[in-house]
Design a protein around this nucleic acid. Structure first.
Lengths: 249, 249
DNA sequence: GGGCGCGCCTGACCTGGATCATGGCAATGC
DNA sequence: GCATTGCCATGATCCAGGTCAGGCGCGCCC
């Protein structure tokens, strides 16, 4: 993780206390809890966790080409990853919500292949990848979790690749956000879009005008209610139907 | 790997002979050679390799929903992976050439999330994933190789996702094939397309007519020469320029 | 308060690629 | 030799979404 360094907040290295819930959004802790590890082994894991941030809105977490040495779980806020094409246009690759992992696609080249920027105040859990690999050799469950996380990400990217209409894309985007918020304990039907229409369009490969128009249309149909960044899903079933092909459900 | 079982050819389990080159296209063998392992350790690896096939053109290697238990390296032929959308239309996800690995995206759900079918006679090296995971715990280099392979695949899928013209997509497709053939020792400038125009279109999210027209146009420009499935790249530089944004080079 | 900038919306128009229809050509089978 | 089938090419037309232009409202700073 290069770019701005942690400037305040929690100690860089987790302390040895027994309170394992101090980082409830940290995916690895929960992943390993699921794997049935005891507290002593979890403490091993916590040694390699470093809490960094907060990053202010617009601040970069890492930039394309930075040397890779760590992956990170989002603790709070939203991180956007993007690349710039040869004409300097931005291509958004993904939005990462609390509990989700950034940096997995950097392993193969040992450099981050994209930029990551905070959409709002962001805190992260940083995991040294070399330490984690080493630990994974001794903890088969952790190794397996890493394989699963990596494998999941392969599928995710393929979703956008399909041949879908603007309406299908937008619906899938909303349903996906909703599901992801819900699994983290937030409301599934009412949340705040932390990104602009332009960002959404860049992500879905649509013009921002099209995003606006589709929002309008979905609202006219009674499927959603939008007010600036606030959104409410009032016709979840209809949205899911639209999103079905994209999300493969 | 479900579907048709091996019906002839090499023994199912590699023998203990010293000839480690018997499977020169097998990515893992070479990956581990690169990692500096000695022959005795390589033999460990070869124990978990099973040569299967040949599969005839049109035969399925696995199908969506099949339980996952192995990944496989293509030894010979081309494998196409695809899914069917809710209206039964086929969406091609990728083509896998000799040396490339299929099945990595199946780890997270323990089921293959797509279908894999042979485009021409195909032989595979099958690797039991559980055995390999276990082995990876004892061979950090192998674990690392697996991480790298998985991480690579995350990026690949993202390429198609972009907002590109038909010409850029087709050029990128050709350059990508060329590069991949070249790294496997085949000619970079002259090769056979093992798939139909429809398959190419399904993969690139273009109509097959558009693929035809773009081929024609690229030929008129002098960048390629096409004769049915045979293709020659006569203007590699121009093609690379067209492909630059898609392939990020 | 007033100017300014940014995000967002909306309408008018344009265009790249899809779709539809047709025909050619090579391989295969009878 | 002739029919069939699958793949490919090409022309005519259509349309989803891009592009361009204008306008509005909110927050911010002087």
């Amino acid at each position: 993780m290069s770019g701005p360094r942690p400037r305040q907040g929690r100690p860089a290295i987790a302390d040895d206390g027994d309170d394992l819930s101090f980082c409830s959004t940290c995916a690895f802790s929960s992943a390993c809890l699921q794997s049935g590890y005891g507290k002593s082994q979890l403490r091993d894991l916590h040694v390699l966790v470093e809490h960094i941030g907060p990053f202010a809105e617009g601040e970069h977490v890492f930039r394309e080409g930075d040397p890779f040495n760590a992956i990170a779980a989002v603790r709070a806020g939203t991180v956007k990853t993007y690349v710039a094409d040869s004409e300097g246009r931005e291509q958004v690759q993904g939005f990462y919500l609390p509990g989700e992992i950034i940096g997995l696609n950097a392993i193969s080249q040992a450099r981050y292949p994209c930029n990551a920027v905070a959409m709002d105040p962001v805190s992260l859990c940083r995991f040294s990848f070399s330490t984690m690999s080493e630990l994974a050799s001794r903890m088969p469950g952790l190794q397996q979790q890493l394989f699963v996380l990596l494998s999941q990400d392969i599928g995710k990217a393929a979703l956008l690749a399909g041949n879908y209409t603007a309406e299908e894309r937008v619906a899938a985007f909303l349903i996906s956000l909703s599901q992801r918020y819900a699994t983290r304990g937030f409301s599934a039907d009412r949340f705040r879009l932390t990104m602009t229409r332009t960002d959404i369009g860049n992500y879905l490969r649509l013009a921002s005008e099209t995003v606006s128009r589709v929002f309008r249309h979905l609202q006219d149909e009674g499927f959603i209610r939008v007010d600036r960044r606030e959104i409410e899903l009032t016709g979840r079933l209809a949205l899911e139907k639209l999103a079905r092909n994209v999300l493969r459900m």
